[in-house]
């Protein structure tokens, strides 16, 4: 298994992405809005400890959408469609760490407006981490003459959240990156992503 770390300073966090999560319409965004989000992005960078771990596995997909995952056979039409033509997959888990969660709890008490901005910036930050990791993996696979499919997470479409258990059993992100799974299948720290990326050759 590989561990991927990147300094939060080097993440490209998109302020428009954060504004979009807040419900902004692009055409009505003012300079002031951008300043508020930019300032929050810098604060979140200090709190974030972006880390990911990933592993590559073979995969087969049957005609009736059964997929052989490293933790067992699962059934998902949407994931099977996404993985159409793939012989391998990456599975990754990524998180920006618990210090963000602590700061968010505190902001909720201080200013609910700022907490809302933090919330969306946190989401944009973990997306930025996934994008960077995704791009690294893409380059590697392109070198081998392959292509990557768009990443797909448990909970998307008909891929059940139950898959989190399987993903956690093979990646063991608790030890390597401090990412845990709660009994309700939600991850802690909050701003975290697990996903599957198809490799087609």
């Amino acid at each position: 298994m590989d561990i991927y770390t990147i300094n939060a300073k080097d993440l490209v966090i998109n302020e428009y992405e954060a504004l979009r999560y807040l419900g902004y319409v692009r055409s009505s965004i003012t300079d002031e809005d951008i300043e508020i989000v930019k300032a929050a992005i810098e604060e979140v960078r200090v709190l974030a400890a972006p880390k990911a771990c990933f592993e590559r596995y073979p995969v087969t997909i049957s005609e009736d959408f059964d997929i052989t995952m490293p933790y067992g056979i699962i059934h998902s039409k949407d994931l099977a469609t996404n993985l159409n033509g793939c012989s391998e997959i990456y599975i990754f888990a990524a998180t920006i760490g618990p210090r963000f969660d602590m700061a968010l709890t505190r902001q909720r008490q201080i200013s609910i407006a700022k907490a809302a901005v933090y919330q969306s910036v946190g989401a944009a930050t973990v997306e930025a981490l996934c994008d960077t990791l995704n791009e690294d993996l893409r380059r590697k696979v392109v070198e081998e003459g392959g292509t990557l499919h768009p990443r797909f997470s448990p909970g998307f479409g008909d891929m059940s959240l139950d898959n989190q258990k399987g993903i956690f059993s093979v990646l063991r992100p608790e030890k390597s990156i401090g990412l845990t799974l709660k009994d309700n299948l939600i991850m802690a720290p909050e701003k975290s992503v697990t996903a599957i990326i198809g490799i087609e050759k």
């Binding site: 504004l19 807040l22 419900g23 809005d33 200013s111 609910i112 407006a113 809302a116 901005v117």
Partner: peptide
């Protein structure tokens, strides 16, 4: 009407 967004709504509320 989507001329004001969530953070502004909340700042006003505060």
């Amino acid at each position: 009407k989507k001329t004001v967004f969530l953070p502004q709504l909340l700042m006003s509320a505060e």
